[in-house]
Design a protein around this nucleic acid. Sequence first.
DNA 1: TGCTAATTAGCAATTCATGCAAATTAGCAA
DNA 2: TTGCTAATTTGCATGAATTGCTAATTAGCA
Lengths: 136, 136
Amino acid sequence: MKSPTELTEAFRATGLKVTPQRQLLFRLMHGNTMHPTAEALYSEASAQMPGISLRTVYQTLTDLASMGELRLIDVGAGAVRFDPNVDEHHHVICQGCGNVRDVYVAGSQALHIEGLDGFSVDSTSILFHGSCASCA
Amino acid sequence: MKSPTELTEAFRATGLKVTPQRQLLFRLMHGNTMHPTAEALYSEASAQMPGISLRTVYQTLTDLASMGELRLIDVGAGAVRFDPNVDEHHHVICQGCGNVRDVYVAGSQALHIEGLDGFSVDSTSILFHGSCASCA
DNA sequence: TGCTAATTAGCAATTCATGCAAATTAGCAA
DNA sequence: TTGCTAATTTGCATGAATTGCTAATTAGCA
Ligand SMILES: [Mn+2]
Ligand SMILES: [Mn+2]
Ligand SMILES: [Zn+2]
Ligand SMILES: [Zn+2]
């Protein structure tokens, strides 16, 4: 994801307004490695801006996602997580506490797939299930 | 997943009753490669047994899943899908029509993962995103 | 400073799934 | 075959996550 300053320019350039709510969310997401849910961000945002609405958090996050600045991660349990890391990477989730971490997988492009039967593959998502150091 | 006959025995052996509703769902799921949702199965089941409830479909599917006879597949869009194929395998989903197909991936166990940082991995789910032959 | 289109907030609605309890029934024992 | 009882089925209520809708507000520009 771009920096808050760069996002400010990018938004204005597209005719989108840069509101205090959006600026706060730019800051909260920039460099964020927690893979937070919308609710989690709403909670963080509310601490700094009481009265901000959950609706606005969802709105801004999906706006950023459709601009390609965020990725949506579905770990198959509860709410979707938002990820400012848009580099090619994958995830481990701890079955104990639900923590999600970025992992980089060598050779995932070259996996030998059997049974494609006419399907063509555009992208690959790998989710590793396991335990973090504290939950082990 | 075991055959309907084998499941009948397995259920009785555990003190679970074998109802017409369950028998129908055993038959509908056995060898089913569609990865159906609960709603989809409910629709098929209703055609053969008007009055069967969606609640019972969910109940029976989760019972089978906790017995290890079914796997739950979350493709990150809409409802969970149920899979009687419990062999080690992965999935391709067509972004066009949502069809899901089984694929077998060589070497997924030996992927070189960077950044685990204390996480230990128990299992791996690979989801390929692409297009089926008709949606290409 | 004023205009206007974009945005926000709040509440309704939707989708998928689970909780609950009354009515029914499978499976066993007599 | 009959009757008992615990398991099951239903239908409805509830819950979690997300999107739809719209009146009130505001950013950005003339
Ligand atoms: Mn990530
Ligand atoms: Mn499958
Ligand atoms: Zn953990
Ligand atoms: Zn398709």
